[in-house]
């Protein structure tokens, strides 16, 4: 499998970041960084990572299905993650989720037909004091209201409409 030079460099660093014989430690970071570029964890990637760290594809599969941020199916270009855990729920997170789902016409872990947005109701993302909070890909947005969310999504659309 051919990886981008950037990913190759990351993988190379990861393989030397752990004690000798412990290359398996690089599995999760490898999957995360690769997913960032590929948009999903493909079977090809599973086999590639397994080969590089010296374990079986099944062992990678066991790990990747455990972690909620690793996805075997492709996500949208912008993955909108709305926290509805307790602090966000108390401050309108659940309503925000309903709003987003209605607006984008997709549900939990679904991708819009054009592949631009995907949506996920997520557990606590660590922004409780600035709730309700969402993440779009890795970017945090605090004190989000339905109106703010609309502006954010529209902004992303227009920025990409070239």
């Amino acid at each position: 499998m051919t990886l981008s030079p950037h990913l190759e460099a990351k993988f190379a660093k990861l393989l030397t970041s752990y004690p000798p014989g412990r290359q398996r430690s690089a599995m999760i970071p490898m999957l995360m960084f690769a997913q960032d570029e590929l948009g999903q964890v493909t079977q090809e990637l599973v086999e590639e990572v397994a080969r590089r760290i010296g374990c079986t594809p099944l062992q990678v599969e066991e790990v990747l299905t455990y972690y909620s941020m690793l996805h075997k199916k492709p996500l949208g270009k912008y993955h909108v993650q709305i926290c509805t855990n307790i602090s966000c729920m108390l401050t309108g997170g659940a309503e925000l989720w309903e709003h987003a789902s209605g607006k984008l016409r997709i549900g939990h872990r679904e991708v819009a037909a054009d592949g631009f947005f995907s949506l996920e109701e997520v557990e606590c993302i660590g922004a409780c004091s600035w709730a309700p909070a969402i993440q779009v890909n890795y970017d945090f947005h605090h004190h989000v209201t339905p109106e703010k969310l609309d502006r954010l999504l529209a902004g992303l659309r227009s920025a990409n409409a070239v």
Binding site: T56, P57, L58, E61, E62
Partner: peptide
């Protein structure tokens, strides 16, 4: 052999075979 593994998490965890 290591042909069986555990996939998913929580109540939906299940046993999985080595080739999909």
């Amino acid at each position: 052999v290591g042909a069986l593994g555990i996939v998913n998490r929580g109540a939906v965890s299940e046993i999985a075979p080595n080739h999909g």
